[in-house]
Amino acid sequence: MTSTAAPDESRAEGRCAGSPAVIWLVRHGKWLIILPPLLYLFVFFLIPFAFALKISFADMALRVPPFTDILTAGPDSHIRLTLNLDNYKYLFHDEIYGLSYLYSLRTAFFSTVICLLLGYPMAYAIARTSKSTQSLLLLVIILPFWTSFLLRVYALEGIIRDNGLLNSALLWLGIVHQPLRIMGTTLAVYLGIIYSYLPFMVLPLFATLEKLDHNLLEAAADLGSPPWRAFVDITLPLSVPGVIAGSMLVFIPAIGEFVIPTLLGGQNNLMIGRVLWDEFFGNRDWPVAAAVSIAFLIFLVGPIALYQHYSGKQLES
């Protein structure tokens, strides 16, 4: 029984007193609300990680499902736990995983920085327009987000492929004599991430810049501060929350990205999402794929979640 819910419940009990079933329902009714989502997410979101952990300690086997059991009944009918650490050792020995971890980090980081450099002036410009123009511009920025992500990546391919619009234009202008090879390169992955996630950067930046108190800037101008100085001293520090929120919204999905490296980056792209997919479907080595997932969780998702948790606490206090 909780302190906040108690008055409501006693009131309700007073009215419906009589039937024990009703009393039971009122007293325990909150579990009818709490349990469905709690159980659902527990079974279908959290338990899967336990299975992944279990399978990451198993061996590959030629059967269905294609891995060995880590719990087996021994001859003396004791249950035996066999933990196979080879999958994790393999991750450290085969350098493709280390390389792809660093490559994914670097790609996500630089894409985020470029999104920030492009998105900041855009958000700033929108925040400076009139209210009605603002809502129109925001709609224009959000609209691509609602249309299919996959189709937008495909549309970008139409621009940057060898006989796409960009190369046709460059050839026609005589700037290049041979089509530029963009598809299948790291540049294509950068372009894909920036193109797809730029709106995620602009929106939170706009939200903080819009709330900015213009009186501060006017005061700075009155006191003789040049506009760039006022920007560096006032606007930039006050927009830090938007910068962090926008960067997170770009960095987090970019690091595990699968569609962009597969469609634009080519067969040998090192983004971790694509490498993991290959391990799973190409090599059908599920124990190693499970081990990569667990390592991914520990080295990438864990730090991000911790960071968000503590920065959230800091904001509250």
Partner: peptide
């Protein structure tokens, strides 16, 4: 559990759910 899917790469969620 409500916040985790927002930072979890889809491919990890998908693989672990498939294993389940």
């Amino acid at each position: 559990m409500v916040n985790a899917p927002l930072v979890m790469p889809e491919i990890i969620t998908g693989i672990t759910q498939l294993l389940l």
